[in-house]
Amino acid sequence: MIESLLNNNMAWASARVRADSQFFRRLSEQQSPEYLWIGCSDSRVPANEIVGLDPGELFVHRNIANLAPPRDINFLSVLQYSVEVLKVRHIIVCGHYGCGGVRAALDTERRGLIDHWLQPVTELARAHADHLDTITDFEGRVNLTCELNVRAQVEYVGRNPFVADAWRRGQKLAVHGWIYSIRDGLLHDLELTIENARDVDALVRRRWSSNA
């Protein structure tokens, strides 16, 4: 029932005020999040909740398969606003194991427009076919591709002119690559953090796996 959502909202707002009477007043005055979250649209990955942050603490951009496409005006607007206006200190690219978008990119079924959106993931998988083919289980291949996709997006973000300009200005900004497991609620740091242009070059040069 759709009405239950409005009722839930009233209960939530009321509980918030009971816990902290100034919460909404503070929130309405300004937002100054330190983090930009680039995550998947999947309803099972609620960004704020899994990192224990309140409203106002995380600027969020979500799309299918947590992509950072260099020609997507929506993503670029979010990135520019968060870096240049909000001056976030950290950008987190967060994928998740079992991602339906990544799974769709790996199979041959045609779904329409989404196939075009997921084309970078399909191409990524093709580029790493030798590595992925060592995994006999399809879900295992999906999960490894989810990790590879996070890394590719971290590299895209690191090469983005808005980010490069921020570093050139001396702005403190780090880009991280994480992955979330819906099976246990745990985040994994994929150790892809970059904090300047040199880190991006080093990441691009770093091997992707022990057989890459």
Binding site: T134, I135, T136, G140
Partner: peptide
């Protein structure tokens, strides 16, 4: 890699 790939399967 090959060992992990097989074990995942």
């Amino acid at each position: 890699e090959n060992v992990l790939g097989m074990l995942s399967g």
